[in-house]
Computed example of a mutant assay.
Amino acid sequence: MSTTDTVVTEESATDRWSDVRDLPPSAKLVAKVLDYNDTLTQSELAEETLLPPRTVRYALSRLEDEGVVDARFSFTDARKRLYTLGV
C-alpha cells in the first residue's frame, strides 16, 4: 500500500464520520456499536452500550435525522425495528 492509498483511506474514514461528529456522545457510541455489529434492535443496542433505552431511542432518532442509520421492521417480530449503519 502506498502513501497515497493510506491518505485516501484515512480521508474516507474521516468523511464517513463527519455527519456524526457534532452529535451527542450517546449517538456516537450507538453509531460505533452499529459499526462493529451489522444489525441490532433497540434493546440489543441498549445491552451493548449499557445506556438506558430512552437514551438509545434519542440517539437513534438523532442518527436517523442525520441519515446515518437505516431502520427497517423485523420480519420475525414486526414490533421491533432493526438498525443498520448507513454510512
Score class of each variant (00 low, 15 high):
residue 61 S to L: 09
residue 56 V to K: 03
residue 17 W to H: 05
residue 11 E to Q: 14
residue 49 T to L: 02
residue 25 P to W: 02
residue 36 Y to N: 14
residue 59 A to P: 05
residue 36 Y to L: 15
residue 35 D to Q: 12
residue 4 T to K: 06
residue 66 E to L: 08
residue 57 R to I: 01
residue 22 D to T: 12
residue 77 D to L: 07
residue 48 E to C: 10
residue 63 L to F: 00
residue 23 L to T: 10
residue 36 Y to K: 15
residue 18 S to R: 14
residue 33 V to A: 03
residue 85 L to R: 06
residue 60 L to S: 04
residue 76 T to K: 15
residue 41 T to Q: 02
residue 43 S to E: 11
residue 12 S to D: 12
residue 6 T to L: 13
residue 19 D to S: 13
residue 53 P to V: 07
residue 35 D to T: 15
residue 23 L to M: 13
residue 65 D to V: 02
residue 10 E to M: 12
residue 3 T to E: 14
residue 2 S to G: 12
residue 1 M to V: 07
residue 35 D to V: 02
residue 62 R to W: 02
residue 15 D to M: 13
residue 2 S to M: 00
residue 47 E to T: 08
residue 83 Y to I: 05
residue 31 A to W: 07
residue 84 T to D: 13
residue 70 D to K: 09
residue 31 A to I: 07
residue 8 V to M: 00
residue 4 T to Y: 08
residue 70 D to E: 13
residue 2 S to E: 01
residue 83 Y to A: 06
residue 53 P to A: 00
residue 66 E to V: 10
residue 50 L to K: 11
residue 32 K to C: 06
residue 64 E to D: 06
residue 73 F to L: 11
residue 27 A to Y: 00
residue 49 T to K: 04
residue 22 D to Y: 10
residue 61 S to A: 15
residue 77 D to V: 08
residue 61 S to T: 15
residue 82 L to Q: 07
residue 87 V to C: 01
residue 21 R to P: 00
residue 40 L to T: 00
residue 62 R to K: 14
residue 62 R to E: 13
residue 34 L to H: 02
residue 52 P to Y: 01
residue 2 S to T: 09
residue 22 D to A: 11
residue 86 G to Q: 14
residue 16 R to A: 10
residue 79 R to M: 05
residue 28 K to V: 11
residue 43 S to G: 04
residue 75 F to Q: 12
residue 23 L to E: 03
residue 47 E to K: 15
residue 74 S to G: 06
residue 35 D to R: 09
residue 76 T to W: 13
residue 21 R to V: 09
residue 16 R to G: 09
residue 23 L to R: 00
residue 86 G to E: 14
residue 62 R to P: 05
residue 76 T to N: 10
residue 54 R to Q: 15
residue 24 P to Q: 09
residue 26 S to T: 15
residue 22 D to Q: 09
residue 24 P to E: 08
residue 49 T to A: 01
residue 42 Q to E: 12
residue 57 R to F: 07
residue 6 T to H: 06
residue 29 L to G: 03
residue 76 T to I: 10
residue 70 D to N: 11
residue 16 R to S: 13
residue 50 L to A: 13
residue 40 L to N: 01
residue 64 E to H: 01
residue 84 T to P: 01
residue 39 T to D: 04
residue 4 T to F: 03
residue 48 E to L: 11
residue 64 E to T: 13
residue 12 S to Y: 08
residue 16 R to P: 04
residue 73 F to E: 15
residue 3 T to A: 14
residue 13 A to E: 12
residue 74 S to D: 11
residue 8 V to C: 00
residue 86 G to M: 06
residue 68 V to Y: 06
residue 32 K to V: 09
residue 73 F to W: 07
residue 6 T to Y: 03
residue 11 E to N: 03
residue 37 N to T: 10
residue 4 T to L: 13
residue 24 P to T: 01
residue 16 R to V: 05
residue 27 A to C: 04
residue 2 S to C: 04
residue 23 L to H: 06
residue 35 D to A: 11
residue 50 L to P: 02
residue 14 T to F: 12
residue 81 R to W: 00
residue 43 S to Q: 11
